[in-house]
C-alpha cells in the first residue's frame, strides 16, 4: 500500500516560526503514517509484550514516509498576545483517519482497524 498524495492544512493562527511549524507538521505526519500502517503493540495470551524492540515494532523510516504537501491558514487568535495557536504535532491525529478513510473508500468497507498491515488489508480484500 502506498500513499500517493497527502495534503495537510492547519490554521495555527499567526505563525511565529514557520520552520518550527512545518517541522511539527512533518513530524506529526510521520507519526500518523506509522500509526496508520506500521506501529502495533502486540501481547501474547499470557500478557507478554511481543513488540518490545525495534525488531518487532515497526517505526516508519525515511523510505516509508510519503512526501507531504503543506498549506497554512493564518487566522490570528484573539485570545493570545501574539495571535498564535497551538500546533504541536498537529497531523498526528488526522493522518491515521485520512489514510483509513482512503482505504475504506477504495475497498468499499466501513469498519477497519489500524494499523493497516498487509495481512489486515488482505483480509479486507477476501
Amino acid at each position: 500500500m502506498r500513499v500517493l498524495d497527502y495534503v495537510s492544512v492547519h490554521d495555527a493562527g499567526r505563525l511565529l516560526n514557520p520552520l518550527i511549524v512545518e517541522g511539527q507538521v512533518r513530524g506529526g505526519f510521520a507519526h500518523g503514517v506509522g500509526a496508520a500502517l506500521f506501529e502495533r503493540i502486540v501481547y501474547d495470551e499470557d500478557g507478554n509484550l511481543l513488540t518490545g524492540t525495534f525488531m518487532d515494532y515497526l517505526c516508519p523510516t525515511a523510505a516509508d514516509v510519503p512526501s507531504l504537501r503543506m498549506e497554512h491558514l493564518e487566522t490570528p487568535s484573539p485570545f493570545t498576545a501574539l495571535g498564535a495557536k497551538g500546533l504541536g504535532e498537529g497531523t498526528t491525529m488526522s493522518a491515521p483517519v485520512a489514510i483509513a478513510n482512503a482505504v475504506a473508500d477504495a475497498l468499499g468497507v466501513d469498519a477497519l482497524e489500524l494499523p493497516l498491515t498487509p495481512a489486515r488489508v488482505w483480509e479486507l480484500l477476501a
Binding site: 517541522g23 512533518r26 513530524g27 510521520a30 525495534f54 517505526c59 523510516t61 525515511a62 516509508d64 514516509v65
Partner: peptide, 19 residues
Amino acid sequence: IVDMLSGHLCRCTGYEPIV
C-alpha cells in the same frame, strides 16, 4: 540519501528536511 537514511530512526522531523 533516503536509502542511507533508512538505517536511522527519527521521531521528530518526518525525515524530509534531513534529506
